[in-house]
Design a protein around this nucleic acid. Structure first.
Lengths: 131, 131
DNA sequence: ATAATACCTACTGTACAAGTAGGTATTATA
DNA sequence: TATAATACCTACTTGTACAGTAGGTATTAT
């Protein structure tokens, strides 16, 4: 299940896209508009700036803005960065210990298929479709 | 993320299908073959018997068997019964309080679409495909 | 100098997942 | 009729992770 981290990150991206104009959007305003905790959002944002999806500038008058056109973001990349893991089962999560039943496991192909359809869906949707 | 309840339920169904022959399969044997806790499995099974997916008979020589051909079970129904919820986000879970942002929510359609593709995938797979 | 911002790190309460534990009810069989 | 083996039921436990709260530092415009 998608946690608040991914869901809030998406709402932040939508909010910035809708309000950036030609300037920078303070996270304080995003938090107020979205009814979310500023302090919590500050913990969620770093992977997005770290991977260049948004740019933040410090100091008075600072804030965030997108680095690309909304149509250039797919939802999957936003969620993969902010969500802990998008795998449908823990044994497919990154860093999961190699399962010793893997060879004879009758269900792993099912879970891999499920992961594939969800990733394809999320990668096919872009940010501008949500505005 | 699919929890152990749904994953174990699936393995139980596969194990019963593979071992029932023309008799009944004791859960104790399933637990031993699958390397799972019998006591834990006993908590997971009731919704499957309650909805008639498997039939259990008590007493010595008892156990469980399928009520239909493996090809007649779809994976989605097994998971929906044993998993707490298959919704991709908590606001789409059954019994979730009506979200007051629902009307203006820009992301709910995305989550509904994600739920749709996962349900379609899981409903399209049948138990016999896993044997 | 000050105010407003991004950015950083530690701590906390709650809920739930994943079991453990100890029973009762039912049925075949010796 | 006693016993063993099963399904079925309910309470309790433990660890972990989610969803924050809290208190700072660094940077920049005015």
């Amino acid at each position: 299940m998608i946690s608040t981290r991914g869901r809030y990150a998406l709402r932040v991206m939508i909010d910035i896209a809708s309000n950036q104009g030609d300037g920078y959007v303070p996270m304080k305003e995003v938090a107020a508009r979205q009814g979310l905790s500023l302090k919590y959002l500050e913990q969620i944002i770093p992977p997005l700036t770290g991977h260049g999806l948004i740019k933040g500038i410090q100091g008075k008058g600072g804030g965030y803005r997108l680095t690309k056109e909304p149509s250039q973001y797919n939802i999957g990349e936003i969620l993969r960065l902010t969500e802990k893991d998008l795998a449908p089962v823990s044994c497919l999560a990154e860093g999961a210990p190699e399962c010793e039943r893997r060879q004879k496991c009758k269900t792993v192909a099912l879970w891999e298929g499920l992961e594939k359809v969800t990733n394809e869906y999320l990668n096919s949707k872009t940010l501008d479709e949500l505005l």
